[in-house]
Amino acid sequence: MKIVVCIKQVPDTTVIKINPVTGTLIRDGVPSIMNPDDKGGLEMALQLKDQYGAHVTVITMGPPQADAILREAYAMGADEAILLTGREFGGADTLATSHTIAAALKNLEYDLIIAGRQAIDGDTAQVGPQIAEHLGLPQVSYVAGLEYKDGKFIVKKETEEGYQMLEVAGPVLLTALASGFKARYMNVAGIVDAFDKPVAVWGVDKVNLPLEMLGLKGSGTRVYKSFTKGVKAAGEVHEVDAEQAVGLIVSKLKEKFII
């Protein structure tokens, strides 16, 4: 089985802070990580490889330093890594990004394409389904479990009410939930070897699309403005004993007609 996993390097948004004086984002010192849902997707691929044997290729679109997550993927057990990079790809929204990645994937053979459900820097959950559409593949999103039986994938999809079981034959695109696939650690030998393994660097020549479909020019949306949220005026804070605390809460609830 040939599996391609789409991964992305993202800033760890859980440690980003706002400068309380200027109201701007403090990006310095924020570590870059492999996006958690993508890492779950890679784990899904590696579990299939462990059970059935598979060739796992990871691909990322990003700046040259995104090489770091490809090395991490090697250390986890990936077999091949591709860095898709170029100025032409910059400023892309999800539509342009998905066109670029889909066009690059056309250079590869695959039975299964896996993407993370969403990336923590954008939280859109769009690129996976959009790639599937561009490639004419069926999709299942929010995947929390997977079995492979008689040439078909039996997929567990999480929903608000519980889950669904779906059946689909490859080639197919699945988007993975980190919560469904607890990522393995890099193994020590793998870490050492990861730095000697080759990463294929692909540029715009591997993307057979007109330049107008890439980057900012190919985007279906544009950012009109961005801003940090004004901090809501803080209310009263009291350091009191438990008895007084209860009193304060009850009078607040009465004041606001909650009780």
Binding site: P11, T13, T14, I16, K17, I18, L25, D93, I120, D121, G122, D123, S219, G220, T221, R222, V223, Y224, K225, S226, F227, T228, K229
Partner: peptide
């Protein structure tokens, strides 16, 4: 919409 894990708000418009 929020971006960067809710740290930043962005106003987006259609480009096409």
């Amino acid at each position: 919409r929020p971006a960067f894990g809710g740290n930043l708000m962005a106003t987006i418009v259609a480009a096409k």
